[in-house]
């Protein structure tokens, strides 16, 4: 039940990514290319996603707990630290260069297109290396 419903949610997300154009780097880069071939579509993706999530979350959070799990697992950090802002800045540079973000690339991974696989492979390397660095840094600080 838990895995089946989660599978269905993944499918809805994957469909949304493909329908919206988030898995098309040309479209993503054009959204940011205000000085060139601007395509405003992505603003509508964000808008559509935010309206539904903003309203939906408020309905969900009226409950004491989620349907299947015991409690809501929400992020607890509140500090606007260097890791957050520096990480976000580096992510943006990578997104601007390649045109794929993780959520845009993952659903189309199963199509096994060489370019998509190359991006995802490089991204996984980045995640593994950064996690190792992050853990090492955390140990140095304790």
């Amino acid at each position: 039940m838990r895995l089946l419903s989660t599978f269905a949610i993944g499918l809805i997300f994957g469909l949304g990514i493909v329908i919206s154009g988030m898995s098309n780097p040309a479209k993503v880069i054009n959204f940011f290319d205000l000085a060139g071939s601007w395509d405003p579509s992505l603003a509508f993706v964000m808008g559509g996603a935010l309206i539904i999530t903003f309203v939906g979350y408020r309905m969900v959070f009226r409950r004491a707990a989620p349907l299947i799990d015991q409690k809501f697992a929400l992020p607890t950090k509140t500090a606007l630290d260097m890791s957050l802002l520096g990480g976000a800045a580096v992510f943006g540079v990578g997104w601007g260069i390649a045109g794929f973000c993780p959520g845009g690339a993952l659903p189309v991974a199963a199509l096994l297109l060489p370019d998509v696989s190359i991006f995802i492979g490089a991204m996984l390397v980045g995640i593994v290396v950064a996690t190792a660095l992050k853990n090492r840094y955390a140990r140095l600080n304790t």
Binding site: G87, A122, I127
Partner: peptide, 14 residues
């Protein structure tokens, strides 16, 4: 290059 930067960035940026 973009993939590596995305991977590093989203890890540090949570």
């Amino acid at each position: 290059l973009g993939g590596i930067l995305v991977g590093i960035g989203v890890t540090f940026g949570s």
